[in-house]
Design a protein around this nucleic acid. Structure first.
Lengths: 340, 340
DNA sequence: GAAAGTCTCCAAAGCGCTTTGGCTGACAGT
DNA sequence: ACTGTCAGCCAAAGCGCTTTGGAGACTTTC
């Protein structure tokens, strides 16, 4: 059933039917009702390919997904996707994932935009002065950055959590508990979130006259194995940390294993706070010793980004609106006063 | 730059240019070269919307993604996606994820197919007599099932690993080590893979005159927490198992935690084998006691499915071709002879 | 030397929708 | 009675591609 058939059936022109269905004003209310009743009854759905060709609107939102043998997609991505999906589903949109060679995403971005494959894009895991943002800004397609970049000479729309405050607060708590040697087990330093977190930690330490020497910092990809290795190397130093602030729950698994390996008890010998993005399959309260966390649902962020993207497509949101979410600090038993 | 402009520039008709570019025979080699040179030089790319409208081909492969507040997307999905992406990228295809209400996926399937949004679909995590398969078969769009379903009265194309053999072999090894009470910590029983694994375990036990009583079986969603709870309840029985075969690495985290909680040592008091889908961020060799696993890369499966899907789209693969991959059994130190 | 292929290429008709630029008739204003 | 306005509708022109149904020119065949 296409527009022509429906129009003929109603004895109206395609124009009128189209306008009626799309809510244009120059159609009488009665006609509009007739049309939409008939459309519903016959299950008419405009053909998206045709609509796209005519309007240039795709009804999809896109993501350029870095891939390659050496690239691992972050498990956080699934949770984000869930959130995005929750919103998108209710609005009959679809998601397009365009895999791109990790070191040449630009081609893919250009292709997507030139082809009008999607109406809006989101960018995740931004790095410092991330070139993708300038590119997409330049291409003139609606977009939102999940996270933030720094060192760019223009503003851009984003949604981020307050990484700096979260890690500041976590560190301050450690200091308040008497810890003098607090280590940061961070994500890769290219990532802006890692930079922000490091800044938060430093600020909190410096407020009490402490510092974060290189020996107390590890910036690595957030796997269990890296968490283990980094923790081992941290703890085997002569001046070992008595507290660790850690950027991910998965890494924290490695921290716990390393501590156990070395016979350090949490929280007696070592206090631990980790950041929790809220996975349904791994919960901080279920660690062998329940983990104190900074918590922020990445799934909720996905929902919100979809919502804002939809608003941008509809022209209801414009400009370089930045949105920063506060992060909860949830105390559980993995922290204690510094050992004497 | 569109076809019309390119044609005018070459002083040819759109027809000829189109045919030249698409490899039709009724174009002289010289003309073809002229055309493709010009196309390359001016960076001409056919507009996919127009092409789609004309041909009905979308250049995308699709996945109907169950979502909803109570639905958690499996973290395995990311790995699968990586694999899919690896292939798809090289072929300038894109992936469409269409979120659907988990209890009404049919509408979404129908919409996708009616709209010709994608050229092919894949279906994952099939359940027993999964209605999606019949639906998609009926809709007549190329598809492949990742995993298998049972109880369907027709054949269908799929790619699966040999779950039954994997769990049979794992269990047999336990039995050979002298274990009499082997428990299976499985995924949700609605999933076909869980059914197959259970069958494998039973078959191995029965071959030695043993059985799998209900008290030795747990079928739950594969989270750390469920692994923990199930293991606790298994171990606190009077006739506790001395060996556990477990369906996922994430669940195995819970098994290890529960064992430790209850003061059981692995492998002295409890042998453990888990299935490993190969996550880059959590490796069995890095468990506190390195885990014996049945291993199969879900990422490789993603690549292969993309490849087969592409072949189907191109008409190079037809029929209900089923492909079953063997599973490695990799022995590490989490298993030992049964305690006396 | 005419009829019958072969090669190449082309004009034009879709694909199904949106949108531009009217057209018509009713009603209000003078 | 005449003009102007406006609500409500329509025909037709795109959007950029593929594909059908030829049409010329050039060989081959008898």
């Amino acid at each position: 059933m296409n527009l022509k058939q429906l129009a003929r059936m109603l004895d109206l022109s395609q124009t009128t039917v189209s306008r009626a269905l799309n809510g244009y004003p120059e159609v009488s209310e009665e006609t509009r009702r007739r049309v939409s009743d008939a459309a519903r009854q016959h299950g008419y759905r405009p053909n998206p390919s045709a609509r796209r060709l005519a309007t240039g609107k795709a009804g999809m939102i896109g993501y350029v997904m870095p891939t390659g043998a050496s690239v691992d997609i972050d498990p956080h991505f699934v949770e984000f996707l869930s959130g995005l999906g929750d919103y998108v589903r209710a609005h009959e949109l679809d998601l397009v994932l365009s895999p791109a060679e990790a070191d040449d995403e630009e081609t893919t971005y250009r292709r997507i935009v030139a082809n009008k494959l999607v109406d809006a894009l989101y960018i995740s895991a931004p790095r410092h002065a991330d070139s993708r943002i300038a590119l997409v800004q330049d291409l003139g397609i609606p977009y939102i950055v999940h996270g933030r970049s720094e060192g760019l000479d223009f503003d851009y729309p984003f949604l981020d959590i307050d990484n700096e405050a979260a890690f500041h607060d976590a560190t301050r708590l450690m200091v308040q508990l008497g810890h003098k040697r607090v280590a940061l087990l961070n994500g890769e330093e290219a990532q802006t979130f890692a930079i922000c977190r490091e800044r938060g930690v430093r600020r909190a330490l410096e407020a009490s006259g402490l510092v974060l020497p290189p020996a107390m910092l590890r910036s690595v990809a957030m796997t269990e194995e890296n968490g283990y290795r980094a923790t081992r190397s941290l703890l085997m130093q002569s001046e070992a940390p008595t507290a660790i602030v850690c950027s991910s729950l998965i890494m924290a698994l490695g921290v716990v294993r390393a501590a156990r390996d070395l016979g350090r008890s949490i929280p007696r010998d070592l206090s631990l706070i980790a950041h929790d993005d809220v996975f349904p399959w791994l919960k901080p309260e279920n660690f062998s010793v329940p983990l104190t966390t900074t918590r922020s649902s990445i799934r909720a962020a996905g929902q919100r980004i979809a919502e804002r993207l939809a608003a941008r497509i509809a022209g209801q949101e414009a400009g370089a609106l930045g949105e920063v979410w506060p992060v909860d600090l949830i105390v559980r038993s993995s922290i204690a006063g510094a050992p004497a």
